[in-house]
Nucleic acid binder design. Structure first.
Lengths: 133, 133
DNA sequence: CTAAATACCTACTATGTCAATAGGAATTAG
DNA sequence: CTAATTCCTATTGACATAGTAGGTATTTAG
């Protein structure tokens, strides 16, 4: 289940895409438009900054803006940063310790197939697709 | 992320499908074959019994068996019972309180599309498909 | 130069879920 | 009667979620 972090983060990114145009957008405005606690968004936006997805500018007149064109983000990469992983099961997480049952597990192929499907789905959705819908 | 409950439960069901043939299968055997704590499996199997997926027989010579032909179970229904939902986001859970942003939410269509895809994927996999793979 | 607005930072917390474990009661076959 | 089994209730430690609190640093506008 995608948590609020991933969901809110996506909405922040969409909000930024819609309000592009020179001036940075203050988090206060985003929080009001999206009806999400600004304090909580701070945590989320920090991760987006760390990931290099958005650029923050301090001081009066400051705020956040996208670092790339909205067409060049995918929902997948945004969700992956905020959720930690898109893997549906623990054993397919990046860096998971290898499972002894791997070679004969009856369920692993299904999880792999689903993981692939999920990855494809979210990496084919651009931020632009979402913003203009 | 699918929890151990859903994953272990599926493996129990597959194990039962593979060991079909008259006599009920004791949980002890399943726990050993699957290398999962029997005590923990008790919790899981109880839910499978409540859902009507397996039938438990007490006493010596007792154990569990499937209530239907393995072809007539889907991975989807099994996971849904054990995980509570297959919905990828809280707002699409069965019985979720309606969201005010529903009519104009930019992300909802994507979540719906993904939920549908997930549902289709798991409801097209039968227990038989998994057991014989 | 000062005040206001903003990002940035560290810490804290309540609640709930996960992944079991513990100890036994009820049931049944041989 | 005994052994093997399901069935039942309760408890627990660790972790994640979804925030809140209170401040510091930075920058622009007047």
């Amino acid at each position: 289940m995608i948590s609020t972090k991933g969901r809110y983060g996506l909405r922040v990114m969409i909000d930024l895409a819609e309000n592009e145009g020179g001036k940075p957008v203050p988090l206060k405005d985003i929080a009001e438009r999206q009806a999400i606690s600004k304090k909580y968004l701070e945590i989320i936006v920090k991760e987006l900054v760390n990931a290099g997805f958005v650029i923050g500018t301090s001081g009066k007149g400051g705020g956040y803006k996208l670092s790339r064109d909205p067409r060049n983000y995918t929902a997948g990469e945004i969700l992956e940063v905020l959720e930690g992983t898109l893997a549906p099961v623990a054993c397919l997480r990046c860096g998971a310790e290898s499972c002894k049952r791997e070679s004969f597990c009856k369920t692993l192929p299904m999880w792999k197939e689903y993981a692939q499907m999920t990855h494809d789905f979210f990496y084919k959705k651009s931020l632009m697709d979402l913003a203009e819908s």
